[in-house]
Design a protein around this nucleic acid. Structure first.
Length: 645
DNA sequence: CTAGGGTTAG
């Protein structure tokens, strides 16, 4: 009976099934056995991580918990969203109550407690725990010492990490590795390298952490060097490499490393898969992403939450919200806060404001509380769909129901909400009464609103604020110049242009990408000719002609280019915009009836927006453009943004 | 029956 229950417990993956075992143990009286009880507690707080509430209630009913039980609960809390509970449990453990004497902590206790302190980055707590460990004579314990090194590294005191490390009697590889990682955390690449070189022994973890460390510092040359010099590449090496490339925007390399991995007959793990899918999401590689999704299903990775969440993100960012929804609705893994937030973000990007709000409600009904990150896409959805009332409601719900202090991102969404809707005065007043100082993004949002609604005076003031912050970018100048151009103030356009030249501010080059046969093609405006661009240009010329004849197209040049030059030249530079080239290339290469999906690094311009609408009508084809800020889905002459931008 | 260092999603 004893063995059977333990066996069954190990099979339990959800709380529902644990419940049955719990009842069984209770009925047979086995639950009072400390060993059995400890197993059950461990299962609830560590193995099934989202059942900590259950574990806590279980624990409270146990008459005299031992060290193992305390350690188990502390460990569970240390990885939870509220690691502070580990400390509370420790205090409880140390308290002398009238019934029981306090339970003395051991090395396990401190390892878990320090992990908790590291996870919420509290140096004060970490130091107090360090003292406690010292009092109990456990600060010299090898495992405790190693966790101290990590904790100090996570809490931003690498100097303390080094002190602990230097005073260690016999550091092993793990301690060395912890020290190297701490140096990377502190941004001290040289110390990391020096330590790495002087290690008496290196294991594969040592190599892997060098790779990850360089990746986080953006040192991609070193990442590639480490990866090629590694004699033994394990699972983690491959997935670290893939994440390293993904995090640094080297998407082509992600795809080729992923294929190398498979070519060598190795099986990608879930981390590699999330990495590749995230690369697909960012690059807009829909076809490739679909293939990876197929692999996920076939190889039994559908149970992994993070993989599902990245699939939702991938489909959304590749323009297919319907598929994203399907993943969310059918995923076998338990939906967590990231799943819901990703989907809300997907709907927001596509301008489906009402659905985004509805999903927030569904999320709340399912028992998962939205956090500060969730509210960013929620508010974004409201502003991009013109839902002023709902935006307002969500903002106060966040503050009053969930007690979330709005951050600058939330304020930014609100400024956008008012500004985009044309209430520039309210947007401005909102900025003035914010409890945090406005940053460049806030002002830039307002500048964008001025541009949409043609408010020259406010735009000038805003530009002034931006200049004071010394954070102007080329886009701000272009925006201001366009505002002047629309108002016909050509002298001012000229002034802006000249100040750009004087300050050597270069326009960020615009590029657009399109995937054809799982290969991404990138087009840059005004790029020199090659076979690919020639093909695009030829097709584009044909398209523009047809649009003029059949669609009544007139180039909209004023708001879109910087220079006040001859009309023909203006028309020419607008024609060369990368998104037009990418679309033309897609029209030339893709079969008729296929959706043309474009990813652009900047915002799509008005003229291109008009052209896309016309193409979708004249050619009866669907075009989806993901620009810097959102999706535009063109169908039969109109856009999903309803010209709300 | 529990540990420490390396890779994952909004």
């Amino acid at each position: 009976m004893n063995q059977l229950c333990l066996y069954l417990l190990n099979q339990c993956k959800t709380l529902r099934t644990v419940d049955h075992i719990h009842a069984c143990l209770l009925k047979t009286g086995l639950l009072s056995d400390p060993y059995i009880f400890g197993k059950l507690l461990h299962h609830c707080s560590v193995t099934i991580s989202y059942s900590l509430d259950y574990a806590t209630r279980l624990f409270l009913h146990y008459p005299k918990p031992n060290v193992f039980m305390y350690n188990t609960l502390i460990r569970g809390f240390s990885e939870s969203p509220r690691p502070q509970n580990s400390i509370t449990t420790f205090i409880e453990m140390r308290r002398e109550s009238s019934l029981f004497s306090s339970v003395p902590p051991d090395s396990f206790t401190f390892a878990f407690l320090l992990k908790a302190a590291a996870n919420y980055g509290s140096l004060m707590t970490g130091m107090q725990l360090h003292c406690q460990a010292l009092i109990h004579g456990l600060d010299r314990h090898l495992f405790v010492g190693t966790t101290l090194i990590s904790m100090y590294g996570e809490c931003g005191r690498v100097d303390f990490s080094m002190k602990v490390f230097d005073e260690m009697l016999e550091p092993n590889v793990v301690a060395w590795n912890a020290a190297v990682t701490a140096c990377f955390r502190g941004g001290d690449l040289e110390s990391s390298e020096r330590l790495f070189e002087s290690m008496p022994f290196k294991d594969s973890t040592s190599w892997n952490l060098m790779l990850a460390g360089y990746a986080k510092a953006g040192e991609m040359e070193m990442v590639r060097k480490v990866f090629s010099e590694m004699e033994v590449k394990d699972d983690v090496s491959w997935s670290s490499m893939i994440t390293a490339l993904t995090q640094n925007g080297c998407f082509d390399e992600v795809f080729s490393v992923f294929m190398d991995l498979q070519r060598l007959g190795l099986r990608p793990n879930e981390v590699s898969l999330t990495g590749v899918l995230s690369a697909c999401a960012q690059a807009g590689a829909f076809e490739f992403g679909r293939v990876v999704h197929g692999f996920v299903e076939k190889s039994g990775f559908s149970w992994i939450i993070s993989v599902n969440n990245t699939l939702i993100d991938m489909y959304s960012k590749c323009g297919n919200v319907a598929m994203a929804r399907l993943v969310l609705e059918t995923m076998p893994a338990m939906k967590n806060i990231v799943s819901w937030t990703s989907m809300i973000a997907g709907l927001a990007m596509h301008g489906h404001g009402d659905e985004a709000i509805q999903l927030l409600n569904e999320m709340e009904e399912s028992g998962i509380e939205p956090d500060r990150i969730t509210f960013v896409p929620v508010l974004y959805a409201c502003s991009h769909a013109g839902l002023i009332e709902q935006g307002h409601e969500c903002f106060s719900k966040m503050k009053n129901v969930y007690n979330i202090e709005p951050s600058i991102e939330h304020y930014g969404c609100m400024v956008d909400l008012y500004g985009r809707a044309g209430d520039l005065r309210k947007a401005y007043e909102f900025i003035c009464q914010m409890p945090v100082p406005p940053n460049d993004i806030i002002w830039r949002t307002l500048l964008g609103a001025c541009s949409i609604h043609g408010n020259v005076e406010l735009a000038e003031q805003v530009k002034e604020r931006l200049s004071e912050l010394c954070l102007t970018d080329s886009g701000d100048y272009v925006l201001l110049s366009n505002i002047y151009a629309v108002a016909g103030k050509w002298n001012n356009v000229e002034t802006v242009r000249r100040s750009m030249t004087n300050q050597r501010i270069k326009k960020t080059p615009g590029w657009s990408m399109i995937e054809v046969d799982k290969i991404m093609y990138r087009f840059v405006a005004g790029e020199k000719q090659n076979n690919i661009t020639k093909e695009a240009y030829d097709k584009l010329r044909e398209i523009m002609l047809k649009l003029k004849v059949e669609g009544g197209y007139v180039p909209e040049v004023v708001g879109s280019v910087l220079h006040d030059v001859e009309d023909e030249e203006k028309e020419d530079s607008v024609t060369k915009h990368s998104e037009k080239l990418a679309v033309a290339f897609g029209m030339a290469r893709l079969c008729k009836g296929r959706v043309i999906r474009i990813v652009k690094n900047l915002r799509i311009c008005r003229d291109c927006h008009t052209v896309m609408k016309l193409i979708s009508k004249v050619y009866q084809s669907e075009i989806v453009v993901r620009d810097r800020s959102r999706f535009h889905s063109f169908k039969d002459g109109s856009c999903s943004c309803r010209d709300y931008w």
